[in-house]
């Protein structure tokens, strides 16, 4: 049960709104980092890659501020019920966003290496498709958060399955390239890490969506989602 009424202590509302706007700022930066890092790979754009790496510092700084603000609200206002869930969720979500930022930064780093190498045909575009899907999920997850829309959050959770499948397909593709020609190994290893990291971003976005469900309903959703990453069982055959 969530209340959208105002607190009698209006400063409490301002505090909660303040933290949530930090989350939105973070979310915007992370969305941009995901898209820009993938673009830097496709365009072999080292400058853009450098920009992504620099922007990660801002994301980290925002996460720290969210945690400080959350600690302050807990100490001063002893939030309970939906207020408590709001504070807990911002801590969790900012952690998820920070991890996504790190993965985007890692992608951008690998771009700087990959520009020197010959990439298998179409592979960077496949990576970008996957990155775009995760970014779209993140956008919806943040919208769901802002609107307290559990149904939208639920669709995000379900879409993570598609990302897992994209990853599985890329995994097999890279494996094939590496077996065909060992000179592909260096590039494919980097590309594989990138794909794996984007898949993990999907998991963090899913966790954000779960926080939205928790925030609205008070319950963490059941593990109703299909587990899509089957590569732990995969062997070259």
């Amino acid at each position: 049960m969530e209340s959208n009424e105002r607190h009698i202590a209006s400063a409490f509302d301002r505090d909660l709104e303040g933290i949530q706007s930090l989350i939105m700022q973070m979310g915007g930066l992370v969305e941009a980092a995901i898209l820009d890092s993938a673009k830097s790979l496709v365009d072999s754009d080292e400058e853009l890659a450098a920009k992504v790496r620099a922007a990660d510092k801002q994301i980290d700084a925002l996460e720290e501020r969210v945690n400080e603000e959350a600690a302050r609200v807990i100490a001063l206002r002893a939030p309970i019920a939906s207020d408590l869930r709001t504070v807990l969720s911002v801590i969790k979500i900012s952690g998820n966003l920070e991890r996504c930022g790190d993965y985007a930064k890692n992608l951008a780093k690998r771009t700087s290496v990959l520009v020197q190498l010959q990439l298998p045909e179409g592979s960077s575009k496949s990576i970008r498709r996957m990155a775009r899907e995760v970014e779209a999920m993140l956008k919806d997850a943040l919208d769901a958060y802002l609107q307290r829309d559990a149904a939208l959050a639920e669709t995000v959770r379900q879409r993570d399955h598609d990302v897992d499948q994209m990853y599985n397909a890329l995994f097999r593709e890279f494996l094939t390239h590496m077996m065909e020609d060992p000179r592909n190994i260096t590039a494919c290893m980097h590309l594989h890490f990138i794909a794996k990291n984007i898949e993990r971003m999907g998991d963090h976005v899913t966790s954000i969506a779960e926080q939205v469900v928790y925030l609205v309903t008070g319950e963490i959703p059941e593990e109703g989602r299909l587990k899509g990453d089957r590569t732990s069982y995969a062997a070259p055959d």
């Binding site: 049960m1 969530e2 209340s3 009424e5 105002r6 607190h7 009698i8 202590a9 409490f12 939030p79 309970i80 019920a81 939906s82 207020d83």
Partner: peptide, 8 residues
């Protein structure tokens, strides 16, 4: 909820 969280 309204009462315990200090809402009107």
């Amino acid at each position: 909820e309204s009462y315990i969280t200090g809402r009107i």
